[in-house]
Every structure is written in structure tokens, then in C-alpha cells.
């Protein structure tokens, strides 16, 4: 048996997964880096992005590309608004206590999931890709839309990095991450920065959801795997470190894609959960080490 086509397919699938994962995990990483809290509802923001794309596709007439572009703008805004509201109504009031935040975001996760189940229904829904063009390899055809996902993720992540490094807001975010008290002394409104970061983190996950939905399907429980994999990426890559997160997303996305082709997905998931746990147990200083402050 010739293994080359399988490897090529697995690599392509891995790259697509790595790109989506990069966006989602960066959202989680940004929130942890700046705010020092873990958002367990992050996967639900991803799911809401995907469901948002489906809503846009059903409501907006015309070619699928129009609805897709609209979804790419509207769904993240909608999700960002929800995240902003959650930050204002819950996280601010518990003063971003790390443990209480986890418990509260677990609550948020259930609420978002069930509300989606009620309104959206239990069935998986497909969304048309904005364009159909299949690239013919000698062994199989591959949707160009998936290449678009990779490209879009690279552009967005590049944009985010540029924004963090070269804009005023990015500077303020990094200052808050570096030293919250000093930032406050310099007149930075830390509360406002937190709200923005939480919303931006959620929006990144939502964009990941919008991008993935033409290749996958929208379902109210689809947030679980992105959440788990984002945890893996953020922890393996070093918490709050953006370059580490990007590198880990590519590594994990690729290896998960490869593993899932050759092994059962459940086994791959067991492997990744144990990886997270053992990294945190045996190498905590580079990862969650600073959380103790």
C-alpha cells in the first residue's frame, strides 16, 4: 500500500485544524495572559461563532459568499458582545478571582449550551462554503475552501500580532499583562482593558467557529473539542506566551490530525488530556507557575 496519499491528506487536514486551533487557542491564551483567569466557556464562544454563521446563511439571501462575509463580521461581534456582557455581569463582580472564575464560567458554559439547544435545536446543520473549487491531486480531490481557512488564519494571527506590538491598545494590553499595578498607576483603566481582552478573546474563538463551519457542521456541543485542544495548546505552549501558543497550535493541530487518521479519535483525546495533566504536574513553572500571585 502506498502511504504517501494518506500522509498528504493527514498533513492537509492537520494544517486546517492547526489554523483554526491557532485562532481559538490564541483567544484563550490572551485572556489568560492578560487577566490571569481561565475561561472554561471559551469553547462555547467557538460554537456560537459556528451557529452564528449558520444563522447568517439561512437569513441572508443571495450567494453563500455574501452570507459568509456577513457572518465573518457579525458573528464575532455578537459573540464579543456576549463576552463583554458576561465580563461585566459576572467576572468583574467576583474581582477575577481565578477559582471563582472557573466555577462561574462552567456555569456560563451550561447556560450557553442549553440556550443554543433550545433555540438552534439538537441537529447538526451544514453551511455552504462561500466557493466551491476542488483541487485535484493524483489521488484525491481537496476543497480549496480548506486552503482558504489556512490563509485566513495566518492573516488574522499576523494582524493580531501586529496589533499587539504596534498599536496603542496592544501596548496597553501588554503593559497590563506585564504588571497590573504599575499599569494602573500610569492611568491605564485596567477594568476596561480586561473587558476588551475578554471580548477579543471570545471573538477570536468565534472567528474560528465561522471559518470551520463550511468544512464541518454546526452543533450545540461542538465546543468541547476546541476547548480541550486549546487547553492543550495553551499549556504546552506556555501560558500567556503568544509565540509559544502559535508554535504549539501547529504542533498539536498537526499531530492530532495525524493521530486521528491512524488511531481512534478517543485514543488521541486520552493522549492529549494526559499530556496537559502531566505537563502541569511536572513542569508547572513555565506554564501556570505565575498564576499563584
Amino acid at each position: 500500500m502506498n502511504i504517501a496519499p494518506y500522509l498528504l491528506l493527514a498533513t492537509l487536514e492537520g494544517l486546517v485544524q492547526a489554523s483554526v486551533l491557532m485562532l481559538t487557542a490564541l483567544g484563550l491564551s490572551l485572556v489568560f495572559g492578560v487577566m490571569r483567569v481561565v475561561n472554561v466557556a471559551h469553547g462555547e464562544f467557538f460554537m456560537l461563532g459556528a451557529v452564528g454563521a449558520w444563522i447568517c446563511a439561512t437569513l441572508i439571501p443571495g450567494p453563500p459568499a455574501v452570507a459568509f462575509v456577513a457572518a465573518l463580521v457579525l458573528a464575532p461581534l455578537f459573540v464579543g458582545a456576549i463576552a463583554w456582557a458576561a465580563d461585566w455581569a459576572i467576572l468583574k463582580r467576583i474581582d477575577y478571582n481565578p477559582e471563582a472564575t472557573i466555577v462561574a464560567t462552567i456555569g456560563l458554559m451550561y447556560i450557553i449550551q442549553q440556550t443554543t439547544l433550545w433555540s438552534f435545536g439538537p441537529n447538526a446543520q451544514a453551511v455552504d462554503a462561500p466557493f466551491y473549487y476542488t483541487l485535484r491531486f493524483p489521488w484525491f480531490g481537496y476543497s480549496t475552501y480548506k486552503f482558504f481557512i489556512i490563509g485566513a488564519a495566518v492573516v488574522l494571527v499576523g494582524g493580531l500580532l501586529y496589533f499587539l506590538r504596534h498599536s496603542k491598545v496592544g501596548l496597553v494590553m501588554r503593559a497590563t499583562q506585564f504588571d497590573r499595578e504599575t499599569a494602573q498607576n500610569f492611568g491605564i483603566s485596567v477594568g476596561r482593558v480586561y473587558s476588551i481582552v475578554f471580548a477579543v478573546g471570545a471573538m477570536l474563538a468565534a472567528i474560528g467557529g465561522v471559518l470551520v463551519v463550511p468544512a464541518q457542521q454546526a452543533h450545540y456541543l461542538m465546543g468541547h473539542d476546541p476547548l480541550l485542544l486549546s487547553f492543550v495548546v495553551v499549556i504546552v505552549g506556555g501560558l500567556g506566551s503568544i509565540p509559544g501558543t502559535i508554535a504549539a497550535a501547529i504542533l498539536i493541530g498537526m499531530s492530532d490530525g495525524l493521530l486521528s487518521v491512524f488511531f481512534s479519535p478517543t485514543l488521541a483525546k486520552i493522549f492529549s488530556t494526559l499530556l496537559v495533566a502531566l505537563v502541569l504536574v511536572f513542569k508547572p513553572e513555565g506554564l501556570f507557575g505565575k498564576a499563584g500571585r
Binding site: 488530556t273 502541569l280 508547572p284 501556570f288
Partner: peptide, 28 residues
């Protein structure tokens, strides 16, 4: 013996991850 090497937030995540691994093992 393993998880008590961690604290607060990472304790929560590690216990969660071990439990998920156990759950997935029962499915596998």
C-alpha cells in the same frame, strides 16, 4: 500524589484533565 504538586488554578485543570482521561478510557 501527582495532582497535589500543583496549586489553585492548575490543580483544578489537572484534576479535570485526569477525570476526562478516565472518562474517555471507559468509553474507549
Amino acid at each position: 500524589l501527582l495532582v497535589l504538586r500543583t496549586q489553585t488554578v492548575s490543580f483544578m485543570i489537572v484534576t479535570l484533565m485526569f477525570a476526562q482521561a478516565a472518562y474517555l478510557t471507559t468509553l474507549y
